[in-house]
Design a protein around this nucleic acid. Structure first.
Lengths: 209, 209
DNA sequence: GATTGTGAATAAGTTCACAGCC
DNA sequence: GGCTGTGAACTTATTCACAATC
């Protein structure tokens, strides 16, 4: 029931919680031990009522006098959006974008770890980039099965994205961060988040007109 | 009135239109000259009624017998979301992520062009990366004024992101693609789109649990 | 007969507003 | 007095459903 209950949370709320957690880490490092909803809201670029609404979904509670405990709230968010053990993730496509992602995650990320990168380029095999070892694509299925990997990041050229996706899904991946400009076809029940730089920049350009 | 009318369009719709346009380009290259809403929907990963609703906002029209003209629709979308002339964009921060963005946009992008990159690293000044020249940050204000730049991409470390943002906004930038993990503070009326890789991956990890 | 264009219905997401609390 | 937690109101976004059209 706990598990099924979690799956209810919607993607936007999860994203905001992730952001709150990052802000809480900063606050904790600064030695603050409590925070009000409107403070978190300012840091995260949202509204105080939105923050309180988001926090409702994880059974925490603050107090009217001092707000929320920075430590407790951070732990509650971690419990809600990350699991107890670190979740292993693979990344496919170690070009500029893939390297940027690896660099970003090389440390400091609670709840998840990019355990391996894969690339079709023989030049890249055997290298370690930002702490993550890179393998040839032929090792992908074995590695997925071995570690029971359920989450993947796609930072490869669009041409081979669907093919790799089919491979991933066939090997048990159920959640994909798709940084390709292709919209993937996946079976029902597989979550895909599209982070399409082209679309993002065109949108920004539109609002800059 | 035309101008003010355009500004009404919401960000999600603009993003989908951008996607439709890309699909239409592919269809045009394949020699197709008409397309139905449900076909575009499948390609873009949405529903036929969503497509028709989106197309309503730009005064096109399809016919029940053959759907939409691939060419006309492409042009109508371009007219709606891009302008007539190419829009100049600058990018600040030429690390892995910045290079990935430059590479992505080096060609084939209608409506916008990344005219210059900026970086604080002296090593990078004077280089041309994926067709885009890179300058030191001191050249930024001059270049913004000179070209009347209104749109920028931030792919630099979070530490200096707010400082650079203030500079950009002060020099007339009104729309920013923020690929930093910091939430920027900007005056009313400035559009910021956050593309936060950390949040994206944590969300995906959540759905992969 | 299948599709478009669109009003109406529904769903999803956000903000309001206020009782209860410290 | 200012804050939390939350039902209710509201706003925004999506889907339905069907008359008009080819």
């Amino acid at each position: 029931m706990n598990e099924s209950e979690k799956k209810k949370m919607n993607a936007r709320a999860v994203g905001r919680l992730s952001l709150y957690r990052r802000m809480l880490q900063v606050l904790e490092m600064r030695g603050m031990d409590s925070v009000f909803s409107h403070e978190l809201a300012t840091l995260a670029g949202t509204s105080a009522s939105q923050v309180r609404r988001d926090l409702m979904s994880l059974g925490t509670s603050g107090s009217p006098s001092s707000g929320y405990s920075v430590r407790d709230l951070g732990e509650a968010i971690s419990a809600a959006i990350s699991g107890v053990q670190r979740q292993p993730v693979v990344l496919v496509g170690v070009g500029n974008l893939g390297r940027a992602v690896l660099h970003y995650f090389q440390n400091n990320h609670p709840g998840l770890e990019i355990v391996a990168g894969f690339d079709s380029d023989p030049e890249k095999r055997g290298r370690v980039i930002s702490g993550t070892p890179v393998y040839g694509l032929s090792y992908l299925p074995g590695r997925l099965a071995e570690d029971g990997i359920r989450t993947a990041v796609l930072t490869l050229p669009a041409e081979s994205a669907q093919e790799v996706t089919d491979l991933l899904v066939g090997a048990g991946v159920v959640s994909i961060l798709n940084m390709t400009n292709l919209r993937l076809k996946v079976p029902e029940g597989v979550y895909v988040e599209d982070t399409d730089i082209g679309v993002a920049l065109e949108r920004v350009a539109y609002f800059g007109k």
